[in-house]
Design a protein around this nucleic acid. Sequence first.
DNA 1: AAAACAGGCAACCGCATGAAC
DNA 2: AGTTCATGCGGTTGCCTGTTT
Length: 231
Amino acid sequence: MDGQLGWGTLDNGEWRKGPWTAQEDKLLTEHVSLHGDGKWNSVSKLTGLRRNGKSCRLRWVNYLRPDLKRGNITPQEEIIIQELHALWGNRWSNIARSLPGRTDNEIKNYWRTHFKKSKPSKNVEKARARFLIRQRQEEQGQEEQQHLHQGAQQQQADMRAAMKRAEEAALAEDMEETTYMYSVSCMLQGGGFSGYSSDGSTGDGSWGSLWNLGDVPDDLCAVTALYGERR
DNA sequence: AAAACAGGCAACCGCATGAAC
DNA sequence: AGTTCATGCGGTTGCCTGTTT
């Protein structure tokens, strides 16, 4: 390419690795503007770029895309990242979809440098705890329909009651957090919020309505599925 | 002024998944 | 139905740069 390859010397005599040059960026950008993104493995053939498809895709997604937002993560974005990470864990691509202009790589790096070494905040821990409680309740409800043994039913009812109490205690503990959760929800959906009643509970008693995530993976079911499959 | 250290970030790697054949 | 290939995702690595000693 330019003869000055640094640690990005030719890999096995074919693919270049390491930092991208301005010329390579230009080639890739031109290719995408002509052919659109996708078909990354054809980039090298069509442009002469000695980068493999994966490398091209990564460069485009993380750096060259015109809709990328430059600059520091804002406090609002930081809150969203914390909350969504509490819900989804390291689902960086999901989190990134909720933050237009940000990439999964960027969020992942930000998380690792800003949060990982510190203990999770109280709010984050609470968010996760409440989500898990709710999820557990739903699972219990499904199991209940399948197993109608009376003893088991009693046990499950006791457990649900205990979890319900725990959740209510968490909610009562600080209304400040409830307001906080509300504001995050509003940010996520651009202000439109429903299903939240003044007593601090959700209208229908589900996280789906509390969060109402919009284009963030559809609804509570999707979130639950994501969480479930992760474990 | 220079060496050591730490943080931030770009890029690579391996694996999983889905589409095409 | 099985195989191959392309793409996407999350984890990890290592360079660069700013800060501290």
